[in-house]
C-alpha cells in the first residue's frame, strides 16, 4: 500500500477493551496513592486527575489549524495543538500562580487561572482573525458546518473552492476561549494541589523551615504542572490527529477517549510527583 492510498486509521472509533484497561489502570494508580499516602497525597492526586481531565477536554475546543491554516486553506489558528494548549495553559498558570501567591483560596485561584488562559486565547483568536482578514484578505468561513451554530450565518458563500474553509468563524472563536478557560483552570488546579502538598510535607522531608522550602516548592510544583500540562496536551493532540475547528467539528465527538487517556496519564505522573515527598 502506498502512502497516497493510505487511509488514516486513527478514526473516531472507541476501543472498548483499551478503555476498560485504562479505567482499571486509573483505579490501580489511585489505590496505590491511597495506600502510600491516604490523606494529603490522595486528595492531591484527585485534584491532579481532575485538572488533567479539564486540560484534555478543554483542548478539544481550541481551533487548531496547523500548516494548512497558515496558507489559508483550513480554518483555525496556524499552529499545532501542543503549542496552543501549552500557551493557553501556561498563561493561565501564571494568572493562577499570582493569585496563589496572594494567599487566595482554591476557587479564586483556579478561576483566575481560567481567566488567564481564556484571555490569552481570546487575544490570540482576535489577532489571528486580524491577520487573516486584513493581512491575507480572506473571510472567515467554516468548512465543516453549513451554518454557524451560534450566529446562524451561512458559511458556503464565503468558502473558497478547494479549501476546507479559512479564517476563524465565530463559533471557533468562542470554542477557543472556552478551551483556554478550561485548560488554564486545569493547569492551575494541578499547580495549586502540588504546591499545597509540597508546602505541607517538604519541610519535614528536608529538615528546613517553611520559609526556606517556599522557592523549592514553587519551582518543583510549577515544573510538574508544566510537565503534566505538556503530556496531557500532546495526548489530546494525538486524539485529534492534527487539526480541529472547534466544538462543532465532528472530531469533537472523540472526547471520551481523551478523558480516559488524560485521567490515566495524570494519575501516573501525579503519583510520581507525590512519591517525591513520600519516599
Amino acid at each position: 500500500m502506498s502512502a497516497v492510498a493510505a487511509k488514516p486509521q486513527a478514526g473516531g472509533a472507541i476501543n472498548p477493551t483499551a478503555m476498560g484497561v485504562g479505567i482499571v489502570l486509573l483505579l490501580i494508580l489511585l489505590a496505590l496513592a491511597w495506600y502510600i499516602s491516604p490523606g494529603v497525597g490522595f486528595m492531591a492526586l484527585i485534584g491532579i486527575v481532575i485538572g488533567g481531565i479539564l486540560i484534555g477536554f478543554g483542548t478539544h475546543f481550541v481551533p487548531v489549524g496547523g500548516a494548512p491554516a497558515a496558507m489559508g486553506q483550513a480554518p483555525g489558528i496556524a499552529t499545532g495543538v501542543a503549542m496552543l494548549a501549552a500557551g493557553a495553559g501556561l498563561a493561565g498558570l501564571f494568572g493562577g500562580a499570582w493569585a496563589a501567591a496572594a494567599g487566595q483560596d482554591l476557587i479564586v485561584v483556579v478561576v483566575s487561572g481560567g481567566i488567564g488562559g481564556g484571555l490569552m486565547m481570546a487575544i490570540t483568536c482576535m489577532m489571528v482573525n486580524f491577520v487573516y482578514v486584513f493581512g491575507m484578505g480572506i473571510p472567515a468561513a467554516s468548512g465543516k458546518v453549513a451554518k454557524d451554530p451560534i450566529t446562524g450565518d451561512t458559511q458556503a458563500e464565503y468558502k473558497s473552492q478547494g479549501t476546507e474553509g479559512h479564517g476563524l468563524p465565530f463559533v471557533s472563536f468562542v470554542g477557543g476561549v472556552i478551551g483556554g478557560i478550561l485548560g488554564g483552570a486545569g493547569g492551575t488546579l494541578i499547580y495549586v494541589e502540588l504546591l499545597n502538598l509540597y508546602q505541607a510535607t517538604l519541610p519535614a522531608v528536608m529538615q528546613i523551615t517553611a520559609a526556606q522550602v517556599m522557592p523549592i516548592a514553587v519551582s518543583v510544583a510549577g515544573m510538574f504542572a508544566v510537565g503534566l500540562f505538556l503530556v496531557n496536551a500532546v495526548l489530546t493532540a494525538y486524539n485529534i490527529t492534527g487539526t480541529i475547528e472547534g466544538p462543532h467539528d465532528p472530531k469533537f465527538k472523540r472526547w471520551p477517549r481523551s478523558i480516559v487517556a488524560s485521567a490515566v496519564a495524570s494519575a501516573l505522573c501525579g503519583l510520581v510527583a507525590i512519591l517525591i515527598v513520600v519516599l
Binding site: 486513527a10 495526548l235 494525538y238 486524539n239 490515566v264 496519564a265
Partner: peptide, 13 residues
C-alpha cells in the same frame, strides 16, 4: 504506559 494510552485508548495504531 503513555505509549499504551496513546496507541490503544486513543487508537493511534
Amino acid at each position: 504506559i503513555l505509549g499504551y494510552v496513546s496507541n490503544n485508548i486513543l487508537n493511534m495504531k
